[in-house]
Write a protein that binds this DNA or RNA. Sequence first.
DNA 1: CATGAATGAGCTTTCATTCAT
DNA 2: AATGAATGAAAGCTCATTCAT
Lengths: 191, 191, 191, 191
Amino acid sequence: MSTSTNKRDDIIHSALTLFAERGFDATTIPMIATDAKVGAGTIYRYFDNKEVLVNTLFQHYVTLFSDTLEKNYPEEDSIYQKFHHLFQGMVRFTNEHDHALYFIKTHASAYFLTADSREQFSHLLMILQNFFDEGKKKKQIRKLPSQALIAIMFGGFLQLYQLIRAGEIEASEDLLVGVEESFWDAVRHHQ
Amino acid sequence: MSTSTNKRDDIIHSALTLFAERGFDATTIPMIATDAKVGAGTIYRYFDNKEVLVNTLFQHYVTLFSDTLEKNYPEEDSIYQKFHHLFQGMVRFTNEHDHALYFIKTHASAYFLTADSREQFSHLLMILQNFFDEGKKKKQIRKLPSQALIAIMFGGFLQLYQLIRAGEIEASEDLLVGVEESFWDAVRHHQ
Amino acid sequence: MSTSTNKRDDIIHSALTLFAERGFDATTIPMIATDAKVGAGTIYRYFDNKEVLVNTLFQHYVTLFSDTLEKNYPEEDSIYQKFHHLFQGMVRFTNEHDHALYFIKTHASAYFLTADSREQFSHLLMILQNFFDEGKKKKQIRKLPSQALIAIMFGGFLQLYQLIRAGEIEASEDLLVGVEESFWDAVRHHQ
Amino acid sequence: MSTSTNKRDDIIHSALTLFAERGFDATTIPMIATDAKVGAGTIYRYFDNKEVLVNTLFQHYVTLFSDTLEKNYPEEDSIYQKFHHLFQGMVRFTNEHDHALYFIKTHASAYFLTADSREQFSHLLMILQNFFDEGKKKKQIRKLPSQALIAIMFGGFLQLYQLIRAGEIEASEDLLVGVEESFWDAVRHHQ
DNA sequence: CATGAATGAGCTTTCATTCAT
DNA sequence: AATGAATGAAAGCTCATTCAT
């Protein structure tokens, strides 16, 4: 019957938004506290310090994203089917967790990430890398280093997503179909 | 007679490197001063404050990049020729100004950018936008919002460039040819 | 029917130990609560605040110590008998209330003591002062200000007691006899 | 021609006074800054943090005290001569460095002392221990553990000194002569 | 011009205290 | 009566900025 949500979740949500919008260093604990409508001290009941907070957040969303990509992965289907699955995963994750993917990207090489966080992120990259490696072996993906292909897709997608969030373009069904096609053409092997 | 280069340039160079590597907020004035081998106070002889410094830097490199793209723009040639010119411009600019493009991207939506800086950045986008608009009119570029096409290319390229700087992949001639092809396939109109 | 001892006593006991070991300012309320196995809020049911707690403690043990010294004081006996009584009182009190005397000494001139606490402490000093005054009048105690004699004995004894608690020397019967002799020689009138 | 003293010394002096009067934990950096008439940040130009400050202070005065005791130590003279030298050293050091000895004693077993600091303090104790050990061997010092004898003398002297500083008794020549006699009787071997 | 010691505003963090349960 | 989650005031500390040299 209570309308109040869980405080820990409020903090996580506020921190995610602010870290994504301003970056870790430009986000202060008082900012997060105000946004989450809790006292500054309360944040320290849930997280030992600011770096633990950002790492917890990072690992949480990286894991969630990895899970999204791995769930129902069409192991037996065509490369294109797999590509489609991954792309749709990106779109869905992005819709369900507003700032999460952008937060992940902008903080993925930050100086304050722990070994744990880096490892989780490596796992995420590995999922994508495996896909591209398989595709290249089957001569259906362009002969470029998998890391490069990931960068092209990830980098492009997130840059695009920022535009959508900024309201500069609309995330219509048409747009997403077109973008998926564009990325597929960017990475697929052309005769 | 002095062998030392211009102090203002030293400061700009150090600031660019550090802002690109650590971000604006994680970079302190003493860090820049130490790296540039000048006193901290000296920075304030050339720049009113830290925000002026970062905006000066931003505008400087955005302008330089715009100039690179506009110079010798093949106004009369094919869309592909123009694409090739723009891509080569990105590559060349990136080689000549080590951290500049990455700095531009990571700071392009920062909270501390002045109207001036945002305008300069808009101009840069406009160059690319004009190209895509023209290409779409001539049915040689994919029917997607130009902003989306820019995001895909810019975002992808810079993500890729980060890998190169991090030493994770090598910027061979082959790679660049392959990447150019990939981007061209991403943006061109397919029958 | 409960096996647990009185909560107020638990708090007093834990506070005494921690104040003696770490000092008032380095001891936090949560530390005391944890050690006493009560909630932090419970401490405030028994004591208005931390300063009230430390003053209550101080007065409690100062009074207890005064009582120990006054009880069975050999009013009619020789100065040496009285000295012996006082010294034995110190030893006994120290054995019965582990950290109490050390806590008293280290907090006897603290900035947070109330007038009440200071008065109680004065009473304790008065007991000793009366003894020394009488002894000097009877020419059996060294001609030094009584306060000085108290300082010498109290200061020395507690410093010694710290060593015993730290386990650096053992509180054997021999040691105590020797120490009593030493103090007696320090304060008695020599021909 | 300047009347201003060295800022580092001002900080050290203020810190010594406050640490001695209130203790480490009850002394705040702003208190020290105010007392030393410097900005709070200035303290951090000279000392990395509060613990470094207190350890620097501790080692400085322990070394100074050790030097005072060791200088002109009458290696060839009688035990009593040596005792006199040590006692006079304590008196002189105490007069020259107002709060130093009290600060040393009250912080000598603090939780924040570094290994270095503890070592320096051990060296100081060793000087006294060697004296007592030699005296006992020559049967001129009471048969008690040297540590106990040190505690009696040190503890008593400092407790006394506090009275003097508090203005409760006056440090007349007579007093000091009497106190020296008292301590000598406390520690010397009696037939 | 150039410097870096000095500053204090504002950061991260702790902890005495309150209060809903 | 007892609790411990929540709070915010104030601590330790950093760093953009100033200014005497």
